[in-house]
Design a protein around this nucleic acid. Structure first.
Lengths: 190, 190, 190, 190
DNA sequence: CATGAATGAGACTTCATTCAT
DNA sequence: CATGAATGAAGTCTCATTCAT
């Protein structure tokens, strides 16, 4: 089954953008990694920036495919949070390069693009807010500012990327997810 | 009161690097913002990269000056965390541009520099780990993996930047710090 | 008959470097003379310095192609010297610009490069020494310090460049070569 | 006896221009070597180019001071040539740096300046022509094209610079001058 | 007179993008 | 469709020269 050229380019883009960063990535290298000619990229993507955005979009979709909100609807909030954490951690572990781009990079082009990336993240975070609000409605959670809780949760999630990919923090995703959920649900206090 | 040229350039660098990102910032613009000639920057900094690093270093120092670890030694862990959060939030609010650089940007040059930035962050985080370990020793906190707690706390802290600076989330730093501390200490569960 | 781009650039480089000198030659002008874009040069040569060195090397090769040492082996030393002189003079006359670079310029970059050029010249001069030594061995020449004779001969050769190219000294190469050889062989004394 | 600033600058210029070449010499370094401020040079010389030319002029004067044409008038041509060679060789040996500039460098600025340097050299060479013509008039030399002889002599002289300064060819100036004169007067032929 | 901080024109070089093959 | 040779805009950095002190 031959892979489509577009697919090939996107994969190469993930590797090169991730290891070099947006500005230090060269179109020529992406083409080389994809095993095609430099000009061919422009048959599928109008510009470097668009290639980067499309790649990011596609990566976020891959990320979201891991979650299955419908299936989780029945579960209690605590368990749902744990699943989200676990899924995220596993994704980080298995897609180290890609994760950096999705959750960290921001020095790409200008304010405009930065806000676009921020918007992308917000969409993801909406789902967390939904869970939180439902948890409160069901009485499983204390009544708190949902915005505040969202920030806490997503921040915790995002922060896990660095030690896992940079330090090689080897911890079983199941254990990590369980412990984080435990702390967030029950607090640090003895 | 005449400002030193070096100081002037560093301030201009914060503005321009923050709004444009490292690669899209042009030396000429930094000079223009500083109100000096293009070549003058090179009298004080040998290269664009060095200017960026010096500026980041100085910014981190400014950030740390806000914390006074000695004074806090006597306080209970909960209160110390609250002070850290509050100080951080105020700093974000008052130095929106700068904060983005210190806590977010990572696509600057190559892997080497990325690791340098990561190392800088780790130093900061060491302080948080100390507090956590002391809290456990004193019996104020549950016995947990300090690494895990550190990630949770620093992640929560870092995550607060975005809504404050990008969305203009207007919430009193005191309230936000109190609520975050409350959740982390006592958990989300009802 | 389409010329290779590389060839085209080297030719343009000879013209521009010769008339402007290394440092005053601008890459843009070389490109213009070659009838190509500025960036194209860098597809064939990694830097200005390398272009200069490659051009010099190639020029020296062209110069050496004019000599055919094997064919000359049978001739008496006097005749061989005359042939060398004549060939050199004709080359100067036909490649005025190039000659200056090969035999005169030395203020290019630093000591290191200067020594490289000097080494290039020495190789050429080795051939003269061989002829001299053979002449002595055959008894055609007086017993003299070969180094001394080499300096004399190569100096005489090199010195002919200036009046020919700068003053337009119009003298038949055959006559000039014959007279120089005559003097060197038989002396100035009446 | 305090040296004049102008003198100081010229001396520094000789050292720096000689070791770095015209284009790689920086005004700041010349000032440093002279032990004065960068701006002071411009009190005495209007530009880098003028400083270079003045320095070259002065150096040529120093060179000429070594010759005393009046005293030599009575001597036979052979002896006068030997004296000229010997004086030249000693000067090379004692002023290695300076000699390179005077007799070799040509990649300074453009065609115009190159011709200026060439003119300077010609003046020097006029003296040689005079000697030759006198020698012929006196019947000490064969009747030859004086231009040709001049080229031969000055070329031989100039060529001695390289092995002396670059290779450290250690030969007594008296011996070298004697041998060169001998060859040129009596020829290479056995 | 002397200085050296400031300047900005100008050079080399990179690399996203185009387009003839 | 695919290619990669060609392009030139744009960026960093150097350094001769100026001028306020």
């Amino acid at each position: 089954m031959k892979k489509g050229k577009r697919e090939l380019i996107l994969e190469a883009a993930v590797h090169v953008f991730s290891s070099k960063g947006y500005h230090n990535a060269r179109m020529e290298e992406i083409a080389a990694v994809a095993g095609i000619g430099k000009g061919t990229i422009y048959e599928y993507f109008p510009s470097k920036l668009q290639l980067f955005q499309d790649m990011l979009n596609k990566s976020l979709q891959v990320y979201y495919q891991n979650f299955n909100p419908e299936e989780m609807k029945q579960l209690p909030v605590e368990q749902r949070l744990r699943i989200i954490f676990e899924t995220h951690i596993k994704f980080c572990r298995d897609n180290k390069e890609l994760t950096r781009l999705v959750f960290w990079d921001s020095d790409v082009f200008d304010q405009e693009l930065r806000e676009w990336i921020y918007t992308q993240r917000q969409e993801k975070e909406e789902r967390v807010v939904e869970i939180i609000e439902e948890g409160m409605a069901r009485g499983e959670l204390r009544e708190l500012d949902p915005m505040l809780v969202k920030v806490l949760l997503t921040g915790s999630v995002a922060a896990m990327w660095a030690p896992i990919t940079l330090d090689g923090w080897e911890i079983a995703p199941e254990v990590l997810a369980r412990d984080v959920t435990d702390i967030l649900m029950n607090g640090l206090k003895k």
